[in-house]
C-alpha cells in the first residue's frame, strides 16, 4: 500500500519534470530565433538592437543548459519569471486567473455529479421504460454539441431572448455576490454539460454491470429490498470507475473552459493564455502551460490514490 503510493508519487514527479522540460524547450523548438519570434517574427522586421536586447532579456545568450537549469530551479520555487509586456511577476497573476477558472470548474463539477449520478442510476433501473432511451439520447447530445455552440445558444436564449441573465462579463464575488452568481450560472452550466453526459452514461453502464453480478442476486435472494441492494451494494461498487471518469473530466475541463471563457468573456486562466499567446508574452505562456499540466497530473494522482484507498484490488497489483 505504502509502496504503491510512493511509486505513484514518484511517477507524478517525473511526469511534472518531463512536462516542465517540454514547456521550457518549446520556445526553442520554434523555427528561427526565439527572440525574433517573440518580437513578432521576421515580417515585423524588428531592429537588430531590439532583437539583441530581447535575447539579453530572455537570457538567450547563455548556454542552453544553464538557461534550462536556471528556469527549472526558479519554477520549482514557484517563480515563473516576469511578463515581457508589463514586467509584472507571472505567479500572482496566474493565481488570480486560476481562481476565476476554478469558480467555473467547481460549480460545473458539482452540478455534473449531483445531477449526473442520480440520472444514471435512474436510467439503469428503468431500462424498459421510455425514460432510459430519452436520457441516453440526451447524453449523446451532450457529447456532440460543442461547448461554444451550447454557450452561444444560452447567450441567445437567456441573454438576448428572455433577457433574464447577463450574456457575458465577470463580477468579482467580493464586490457583488448576487451579480457574481448571475454571471456565473450560464458559463458553469455550459461547462458542465459534457461532463454531466459522461458521468450519466458511465453511472448507467456501471450500475447495470453491478446489478447483473452474482453478489446482487445473492443479496436479493436472501431477502434484501431492491433499494438497499441498489444503493448499499451496486452503486457503491459502481462509484469506483465513476470517480476515475470524474477526475479525468475535471482535468479535461481545464482545457475545455478555454471555449467557455471565450464565449462569455470570462477572465480566467485560458483567456489569459490566448491573450498572452497573441502578445507573444512568452514567460506567461510557459507559466500557464506548466500550471495547467501540473493541475492535470495532480488531479489524476489524487484520483489514482483515492482509487487505491477504496479498492484493495488496485493496490495489491
Amino acid at each position: 500500500m505504502k509502496w504503491y503510493f510512493i511509486r505513484r508519487l514518484l511517477v507524478s514527479f517525473v511526469l511534472v519534470w518531463i512536462v516542465a522540460t517540454l514547456v521550457f524547450f518549446s520556445l526553442h523548438l520554434l523555427p528561427g530565433d526565439p527572440a525574433l519570434v517573440v518580437l513578432g517574427g521576421a515580417e515585423a522586421n524588428p531592429s537588430p538592437e531590439a532583437v539583441a536586447a530581447m535575447r539579453e532579456k530572455l537570457g538567450l545568450n547563455e548556454p542552453i543548459f544553464t538557461q534550462y537549469l536556471g528556469w527549472v530551479k526558479k519554477a520549482a520555487r514557484g517563480d515563473l519569471g516576469k511578463s515581457l509586456i508589463n514586467e509584472r511577476p507571472v505567479g500572482p497573476d496566474l493565481r488570480l486567473r486560476l481562481g476565476r477558472t476554478l469558480q467555473l470548474i467547481i460549480p460545473a463539477t458539482v452540478l455534473a455529479i449531483v445531477v449526473g449520478i442520480p440520472m444514471g442510476v435512474f436510467a439503469a433501473t428503468h431500462r424498459n421504460s421510455i425514460i432510459d432511451p430519452i436520457l441516453s439520447s440526451l447524453a449523446l447530445l451532450g457529447f456532440s454539441v460543442p461547448v461554444f455552440v451550447m454557450g452561444i445558444l444560452f447567450v441567445w436564449f437567456f441573454g438576448l431572448y428572455l433577457k433574464v441573465l447577463p450574456a457575458s462579463g465577470y463580477i468579482p464575488f467580493r464586490d457583488n455576490p448576487v451579480g457574481f452568481l448571475k454571471v456565473m450560472i450560464l458559463p458553469a452550466l455550459t461547462l458542465s454539460f459534457g461532463m454531466l453526459a459522461t458521468v450519466m452514461r458511465m453511472t448507467r453502464s456501471c450500475v447495470l454491470e453491478q446489478l447483473g453480478a452474482d453478489y446482487v442476486r445473492t443479496a436479493r435472494s436472501k431477502g434484501l429490498a431492491f433499494k438497499t441492494v441498489l444503493y448499499k451494494h451496486a452503486l457503491r461498487n459502481a462509484l469506483l470507475p465513476i470517480s476515475t471518469v470524474i477526475a479525468l473530466q475535471v482535468g479535461l475541463m481545464f482545457g475545455g473552459s478555454v471555449l467557455v471563457e471565450s464565449v462569455y468573456n470570462w477572465p480566467g486562466i485560458n483567456s489569459f493564455l490566448i491573450m498572452s499567446i497573441n502578445l507573444r508574452d512568452y514567460p506567461v505562456v510557459q507559466g500557464i502551460l506548466l500550471l495547467i499540466s501540473v493541475m492535470f497530473i495532480g488531479i489524476n494522482l489524487i484520483a489514482d490514490m483515492g482509487y487505491a484507498l477504496l479498492d484493495p484490488k488496485v493496490r495489491l497489483n
Binding site: L15, G256, I274, L289, I292, F296
Partner: peptide, 13 residues
Amino acid sequence: ITLCFPPIVVAIF
C-alpha cells in the same frame, strides 16, 4: 506524457 496536457491547450499553443 501526451495525456498530461489537455489536447485543446496544446493545439492552441
